[in-house]
């Protein structure tokens, strides 16, 4: 999934194997992350704004399992 960061795009990489279901990403970026019925994170489809990029960075930073990484495109 790629998010428009205003000045370019970032790609969200989520490693579901690493996820421990902390829910930090859902708190930080509810437009971009959700949890499946097992409580494990998923990335949502959607359209992005510059604000989303901040949220997505917050999600990656607060993920305790280091399961989220962002690549600029």
């Amino acid at each position: 999934m790629t998010v428009d960061a205003g000045r370019g795009f970032v790609r969200i990489n989520l490693d579901r194997e690493k996820c421990i279901g902390s829910g930090q990403c859902v708190l930080a970026a509810p437009d971009w992350f959700d949890q499946d019925e097992d409580g494990i994170a998923i990335v949502l489809e959607g359209t992005a704004s510059e604000e989303d990029s901040e949220d997505v960075h917050q999600a990656a930073y607060t993920c305790p399992a280091l399961a989220i990484s962002l690549d600029s495109e």
Binding site: I20, G21, G23, V26, L27, D38, G39, I40
Partner: peptide, 17 residues
């Protein structure tokens, strides 16, 4: 640890809370 934790993560999700 992951094996034990994954067994209960569903009950502690944001939606459940």
């Amino acid at each position: 640890h992951a094996y034990l934790r994954r067994m209960v993560t569903a009950d502690f999700s944001n939606r459940k809370a």
